[in-house]
Each structure stands twice: as C-alpha cells, then as structure tokens.
Design a protein around this nucleic acid. Structure first.
Lengths: 200, 200
DNA sequence: CGCGTGATTGAAACCCTTCAAGTTTAGTGG
DNA sequence: CCACTAAACTTGAAGGGTTTCAATCACGCG
C-alpha cells in the first residue's frame, strides 16, 4: 500500500467503516497521483472517469461561460472529493473543468471502485448515501444564498464556512465562487474592514 | 389499495421496478391526502417527517428571509417528490416551508417507507440512488445559472425546462425562483415579446 | 531588478430593485 | 351572472448595488 494515502485510508477505515480484509481488496483498485499546480484533470466534453480524493493540496471545479468567464462550482482541499458526479454517474460528457490551485496529491477513484465498494460493504453504501445527502444539503444552502443574499452577506458566509480556504484561495477565485467580480469583493472587504469586522 | 394513487403506483412498479408482492407490502406503508390550495405542509423549525409525492396538483418549497421575502427552492407537479431531503434524512429541523399552489393530491412517504423499500428491493435502492444523483445534477445546473446568467437568460432557461410550470405558476413565484423581483420579470417578458420571442 | 499576477481604487455605465400608481385578472358573494 | 374586491401584473421614475474599464499599487519569483 502506498504510504501517501494516509487520509484516504482513514477515510475508508474510519468514515466508511471498512474492515481490514475488505480494505485490502479495495485499496488495490485506486491510484495515487501527484498533481502540479495548474494541471487540468478534467475538461468540458470529457466524461469524468475518476473522482479525486484530495490527500493534500487544493483542487477546484468550474465552468467557463460564453464570455470566457470562469464560475467556480467547488473547492476541494484535504479529505474532500472533487468530481463531476453527474458526468461520472450518468457517463455523460462534463460541463466542468477540474484543475489544481496548489500542488496536490490525489487518490483516483473510479466508478468501478465505487461499485465494488458498494457491493462489498453495506457500511460503505451507507456512507456514500450520507455523502450524497450532504452534497444536496450543501448545494441547497448555496442556492438559497445566491437567491437571497448580497455580495457582503455571501462573502461573510464564505469565510465562516471555509476559514481555511479564505486564506489559501486567491481572492479573485473566491469572487468567482460567490458570483461577483474581484473588484466587488475587494470593495466588500474594504467595507468590512472599515466596519471593524474580524474574520475570526 | 387506494385508487387515487395511480401515479405513485406507476412510480413504484415501473420506475423503481418493484415487483407485485413487494409492492403489496410497501403500499400499505404510505398515506394518501388531499391538500387544499394554500395549505402548509412543512414549516421552518419542524423536522420533515414526510416527503410528498404529487399525484396531481402543484406544491412548492421556499424559504423566507429576514426581510420577509420568499425564495422558492423547488416546484413539484405531477410525479415529482417535494421534500426537505436534508431535514428528513438527517432528522434536523428544516429551514423550509412547503405549501400547495393548487389543490393537490399527495402520497405521504415516511423515512420508514424509504428504509423498508431499500431493504426489500435492490432496484428501489438503485432508483433512489439515481434520484439523488439527478437532484445533485439539477441543483448544480441551477447554481451555475445563478452564478453566470442574467435575469433574461435565467427566465428563458426556465420556460425551456418547465414549459408546463410557466403557465401554471403565478409570475411572481417564477420571479422568486429565478432570484429577481416580479417587476423585473414583467419587464424581461416585455423585452422578449418585443424581440418576438415565442415560448415554444 | 523587472516582469507578471493579483489586489485596489476611481468613475461611469448598467442591470436590477424599490416605490408608487395604474391596469388587468380572478375569485366571491349578492 | 354581474358587481365588487383583492391579488396579480404592468409601467414609470428614481435609486442602489454591482459591473466594467482603466489606472495604479503590491508583491513574489526568476
């Protein structure tokens, strides 16, 4: 077993509660890779063959619109899985880019792996279910925020939810995630600083 | 069996592929109800005990923000399930209202039902999985639209996706779903009419 | 050092909202 | 079935939040 997959191991054993013999079977099904900052892991039009478990580092998924503007769908740092679930599950071409914001170590998870893990282990099935439900909950909160909140409220929500990312991710990407321009985010931050708002 | 549950029956037998004997077991676990227009089925703070399968009629789920404004999360007409999945699954208090836009016939689906159906039938488990993945795909497209598209593009996307709802749902609710004011939607429609845009 | 990327700032423009008034539509009771 | 009322939709004018475009500043890295 690859000693670089510590987090992934913990993920399977602790979170998904996979017992040792099953673990030994499953771990053979995944691949480990070093990704350089800027490297592109998925492009629109491609089918998302692998989900990426982040051992360490930082990935993002995003779309590019007709005007060439990027819109960030998701960030993924340590212990997160970045993927185009729809593309992977339904075997359809993706709309998304996935690339690396930092040098990143990832575990490649194939659909095969997911199917086998689900067959082998009821607790994996269960954990996967929870992950899906969490994803839905998370997306719904984001939709609600986009529908109802100003740029300032969206940003405040972001730094509360992802204090770590706030420091690691360039500001213009956070702006893209929030659906505002970098200039607007800069002004929002200035406003907040002026109001004596402290991130923590 | 209740003769009013024709669509739900078809849903179980055809979509989820439940065989007759299992069907007979499961159908006893659900309830049928007539809902009057305006009736509220779920309020913020309550745990979402039932998901609502719409036999016919029209439901919606929505939040109300601090300023008292409604933000519509989902519409559900015939054969759709309306629910706060997060609340139901995680047994947490909901943030949502669910109410009826029209007089509606619903089938009440409890968590019990879902658990039993999953135990009994692998094909139900499978179908449920697909439903979750579809939900995620749908939400992701909506997020992307909210991040990237103008009021006009959002509306055009809506009428393409939901031509039936465009006629049945009051305009101010569509506006709420799109994240704009009713006045703005009215002007967008005027613009489109002026450009000789035809809904179908 | 100098170059490039990211962040900031300013001014003008734009999209959308707000508020207010009017018009149309739909539902209800006489 | 008409009359009345409330709700929904439209329209206008003013205002606000955000974008756009352009210029400047800050910083890390070769």
């Amino acid at each position: 077993m690859n000693t670089y997959m510590q987090n992934f191991t913990k993920y399977l054993k602790t979170k998904a509660n996979i017992a040792e013999p099953d673990f030994q079977l499953l771990i053979k099904k995944v691949e480990f890779r070093n990704i350089e900052k800027g490297e592109i892991l998925l492009r629109p039009g491609e089918v998302c063959k692998h989900s990426f478990f982040v051992e360490n580092g930082l990935l993002r998924s995003y779309t590019v619109d007709d005007a060439g503007k990027e819109h960030i769908i998701q960030f993924g740092s340590e212990n997160w899985i970045v993927s185009d679930r729809s593309s992977a599950f339904f075997n359809e071409p993706s709309d998304l880019f996935i690339d690396a914001i930092e040098d990143t170590k990832v575990v490649l998870i194939s659909s095969d792996f997911l199917n086998e893990a689900s067959e082998i282990s009821a607790s994996f099935r269960n954990y996967n279910q929870i992950a899906l439900q969490n994803h839905i909950r998370h997306q719904q909160k984001r939709i609600n925020l986009l529908l109802s909140a100003s740029a300032e409220r969206r940003y405040m929500n972001f730094i509360k939810l992802y204090p770590d990312l706030t420091l690691r991710v360039p500001q213009w990407m956070i702006a893209s995630y929030l659906g505002i321009t970098p200039e607007s985010l800069s002004r929002v931050r200035k406003e907040l600083a002026h109001k004596n708002f402290k991130p923590n």
